[in-house]
């Protein structure tokens, strides 16, 4: 009896569980329900069966949105990973001035997405910004360039964070590894490919997973910078949902799109849990 008194009862978890149920789970159930309704934001939602789901087949912007989402995620990964990896390894070096420079690298992390977006919109103004001195200055308005410009600004915001991950991981590689290879006559480049890179494998996975999760939240920056445009050149899936829901006030169809996002998010959660070992924690020390 005495040994059992320490075990905290269900009541300890109840506030968190109930709160999450109300503002986390209920909305997820709600979004599934709303996907079968017609609702323009006024009055009450009307049940219309599977019409919203059927409408997806003829929505060219939906397929465009999925394509843009995948492209942006892949481009962001391709841009950020080598940059963060190389800069992180470099910043892990011993020279003192690197500490100062690392601080500079870190500065974008202090700015909110909104602050970064308004800054780059001003810089990229085609007639009165920095962009004006670069060809015709058409960056955010070019259907060919806009998505890559967004990927660049995303990199500007997040490379510092991933650099930090790589920097600290590099510092943890045992010194003896490098000393041993130096004796074998390995040069800097060879050391990088044979020691540093393999040792950072787990960090690469972790950083990539974080980018993948983050890619679903790039939405706010796009909303602020291009609003999905020009046309649908930067209209990623979350933005397509937002446009349908809060510009077109077709909340039912927006909810159907949102269900896709929830499903993608849940799938990603499983990837995160698998790749980080969170799931194992639940059994690690049970009964201790």
């Amino acid at each position: 009896m005495k040994a059992r008194t320490e075990r905290p009862g269900l009541g300890w978890a109840a506030p968190a569980v109930l709160f999450f149920a109300a503002f986390g789970i209920l909305p997820v159930i709600g979004v599934v329900y709303l996907s079968f309704t017609q609702w323009n934001g006024l009055g009450d939602p009307q049940w219309i069966g599977t019409a919203n789901w059927a409408a997806m087949g003829s929505d060219a912007d939906l397929f465009n949105g999925i394509g843009k989402t995948v492209t942006l995620t892949v481009v962001s990964w391709l841009l950020q990973t080598p940059l963060a990896l190389l800069i992180g390894v470099w910043a892990a070096g011993p020279q003192r001035n690197r500490a100062v420079l690392s601080t500079l690298f870190f500065l974008p992390l202090l700015l909110s997405t909104a602050a970064i977006s308004v800054t780059f919109v001003a810089l990229l103004d085609p007639n009165f910004g920095l962009a004006a001195s670069w060809g015709d200055g058409n960056f955010l308005g070019s259907p060919e360039r806009a998505l890559y410009v967004i990927a660049f600004v995303i990199a500007w915001q997040f490379v510092p964070f991933h650099t930090l991950l790589y920097q600290s991981a590099t510092r943890q590689i045992p010194r003896s590894f490098f000393e041993a290879s130096a004796i074998d006559g390995a040069t800097g480049l060879k050391q990088f490919f044979h020691i540093t890179l393999p040792q950072l494998r787990n960090t690469i996975i972790a950083s990539s997973v974080l980018m993948l999760v983050g890619s679903l939240t790039y939405f706010e920056m796009i909303l602020l910078m291009t609003n999905g445009g020009p046309g649908t050149a930067t209209r990623v899936l979350p933005l397509h949902m937002y446009a349908k829901g809060f510009v077109g006030f077709d909340m039912g169809y927006a909810s159907a799109l949102a269900v896709l996002l929830v499903a993608a998010g849940a799938a990603l959660s499983i990837v995160v849990v698998r790749s980080t070992g969170y799931h194992r924690m639940s059994s690690d020390r049970e009964g201790a």
Partner: peptide, 25 residues
């Protein structure tokens, strides 16, 4: 344990995906 599993599943679900029902609630 079940609720822990549910929390884990919510790790990567973006809040914006449920903005419509959140607004309704």
């Amino acid at each position: 344990r079940l609720s822990f599993g549910v929390f884990l599943l919510g790790l990567a679900i973006p809040a914006q995906a449920v903005i419509v029902p959140i607004y309704l609630i």
